[in-house]
């Protein structure tokens, strides 16, 4: 048996694309929160005198600091939803059609994840566009390209996590009822909003255990040229975690019951 069926995998990806561009209302609403954060938090706080926030260098304004965090947030939310979309398909019966086809589940899972990744990164680029429009200074074109690497890793990590969560919970209601309980702490226990240096000591250790932290740090390092850890450090940690979560996610999907 082949490990990867290219055509079905591509087809799963294509379907995610078609669906993404079909649901324009969802697309527009997904920009609402990032936009509000940047406008009502980023711009006012960037008026504070420089150097007044520990952890942010004097040469940097808060909006520049915040923008990669908001980009990360968008990727986090959309990736987890993409991972969990397997539950939607189960709910609406489409999953059965997919599973009855003579295609191994790894190809299905990979195609679907690549689709989720693509749509998340498209959203990510739109956030970058909005940020630049609001006055964020992207450091360089090479930095912009490097940020794609971190976007891919963040997506892989949280799509994998989303699939694991979805398959363990088994239905949409269960997932929706706990999703914000999981998403929000991941988001807040990271340097997405505020630098670690401003947090109490005990939270710092939690932040260091959160994979999302390294994603944010990597994005920030590549986009606006400031990071807490060396970028290679962020890259390796996130790479390992994303591979592990994708493998676990595939395993969970493989074991998923059709019922």
């Amino acid at each position: 048996m082949k490990i990867i069926d290219p055509l079905p995998m591509y087809t799963m990806w294509l379907r995610e694309m078609i669906r993404f561009f079909r649901m324009k209302a969802r697309l527009v609403s997904s920009f609402m929160m990032p936009l509000l954060f940047l406008a009502f938090l980023g711009i006012p706080l960037s008026l504070l005198p420089s150097g007044s926030m520990p952890g942010i260098p004097e040469s940097m304004n808060f909006l520049d600091y915040l923008a990669p965090g908001i980009l990360g947030m968008t990727l986090l939310f959309s990736s987890m939803m993409a991972g969990a979309s397997v539950l939607w398909d189960k709910e609406f019966g489409f999953l059965k059609e997919v599973l009855v086809a003579p295609v191994n589940r790894l190809s299905i899972m990979l195609g679907r994840s690549l689709g989720g990744m693509t749509t998340s990164i498209i959203q990510g680029f739109m956030i970058i566009g909005i940020s630049v429009f609001m006055g964020v200074n992207v450091s360089s074109v090479s930095g912009l390209l490097l940020s794609i690497v971190f976007m891919v890793l963040i997506c892989a990590t949280f799509i994998g996590f989303g699939v694991i969560l979805a398959t363990q919970l088994g239905d949409m209601e269960g997932f929706m009822s706990i999703i914000s309980m999981i998403q929000m702490p991941i988001f807040f226990a990271s340097p997405a909003f505020l630098p670690m240096e401003m947090m109490p000591h005990w939270i710092k250790s939690i932040i260091c255990l959160n994979p999302f932290t390294y994603g944010i740090d990597g994005l920030r390092g590549s986009l606006v040229g400031y990071s807490t850890f060396p970028l290679i450090h962020d890259f390796v940690i996130l790479l390992v975690i994303s591979v592990v979560l994708m493998i676990l996610g595939s395993y969970c999907f493989e074991k998923m019951e059709i019922d």
């Binding site: 087809t11 669906r19 609406f92 019966g93 059609e97």
Partner: peptide, 18 residues
């Protein structure tokens, strides 16, 4: 067991590719 966000033709095309 079809995807309601796709057209009828897209659904069949999807199956054919699978």
């Amino acid at each position: 067991a079809v995807d309601t966000y796709l057209t009828g033709k897209q659904n069949l095309d999807f199956t054919a590719r699978m």
